[in-house]
Structures are given as C-alpha cells and as structure tokens.
C-alpha cells in the first residue's frame, strides 16, 4: 500500500525532526573569538589554514624531528606563541584542557569534536615561568662570539694539560 508507506515515512520524518530539535537545544555556541583574533597575521591565508593547518603541522613535525629542519613558518611553537596568551586577564593559566574552551586550539576543536593529542607532549602556551638565562657564563651565544674573537680562556688552555697531571698523580 503506497499510502500506508507514505504515512509511515512521514511519521518517521516527524520523529526525526523532533529528535533534531532536541539536539539543537544542546549545541553549544562555539567560542571563535580566540581563533579569529589574529587571523590576519597568520603565516598562510585564513581559508587555507582552516582547511590545511593539520597538514602543515604534520609535514613540519617530521621534518623537524627527523631532519632537524627548524624553520618557523609552520612550527607549532610559533602558532602557540602568536595565538595563545599564557594567562587570562585574571592571571590564570590558559590550557588546552580548560573547561572554558578559550584556548585557541580547543575553542574550535572542542566544537567540531576533533580530538588532538599535540598537547600531551607539547606546551600548550608560551613559556612564562622563567627566563632561561640560567646557563653558565659560557652561554651559547657569547661562547660562540668569544670563540671567534676573544683570546682563549685560561681554563681552555689547561683543559688537557691539567687532566694529564691529575692522571699522573693517580699513577
């Protein structure tokens, strides 16, 4: 009976519509403000980034880890440095996992329901804890400067000679 089957399908459709309405009430408003804030300064056009950011990151991560290529254009660190403020205005830390979903990445990823595990290992905000100027006096930059221009340090000159003396004593 075509009529009966029509009624049936209409009923099913109606039920489906009701179900959809029910769902609609549950859809959260995406918080896209963090994602849009710096779109204009991005390393690629916005449309391209929306579609392909994960491809750029995937290619770059292998190049970096395996080949040691450390260009900044598609580096995750640079994304974070530019798009994520380390703290909110009230001084609290911004993390990808926060309930507020105001982290640049989570604002969108939580909305579309795409899980990512970048931040299990990677820092999800710029480093603020300390200036890593903790190094020894021969911090890398100054060391290389001095290596080219300055006369060798006394300790350098003694490096090998003294160790021999020490070894001579142990004999």
């Amino acid at each position: 009976m075509p009529l009966l089957s029509n009624i049936k399908s209409l009923l099913v459709l109606a039920l489906f519509a009701i179900a959809l309405v029910g769902c609609d009430a549950g859809v959260p408003e995406p918080n896209l403000a963090p994602a849009k804030a710096k779109a204009a300064q991005c390393v690629e056009p916005t449309a391209d980034m929306r579609k392909n950011h994960m491809k750029y990151l995937l290619v770059h991560r292998d190049k970096t880890v395996i080949e040691g290529i450390r260009t900044t254009q598609h580096s995750l660190n640079e994304c974070i440095n530019c798009h994520v403020a380390p703290t909110r205005e009230d001084g609290s830390a911004v993390h990808y996992t926060d309930e507020k979903k105001d982290h640049f990445c989570s604002s969108c990823h939580s909305y579309v329901g795409v899980k990512l595990d970048c931040f299990q290992c990677h820092a999800d905000r710029p480093q603020v804890m300390e200036n890593i100027n903790y190094q020894h006096k021969l911090s890398s930059n100054t060391y290389h400067l001095s290596a080219k221009n300055a006369p060798p340090e006394l300790s350098d000159l003694l490096l090998l000679g003294q160790s021999q003396q020490a070894q001579g004593v142990t004999q």
Binding site: G68, I69, P152, L157, L159, L160, G161
Partner: peptide
C-alpha cells in the same frame, strides 16, 4: 702529549664546536 694538546686547543678556538646550520637545511 702536553705540547700537542695546547696546540689542539689553540686551533679549536678559531672555529666554533657547533657550526650554525641554516634552519631550512636538513642535518
């Protein structure tokens, strides 16, 4: 050996131990 050793050091300070590599070049 000691004599040779200070020669080693003297030569080495003219070039850095870790030459900077262009960021876009593979290792």
């Amino acid at each position: 050996v000691g004599g040779l050793a200070s020669g080693v050091i003297l030569r080495s300070v003219e070039a850095s131990d870790v030459p900077a590599k262009p960021a876009d070049q593979p290792v």
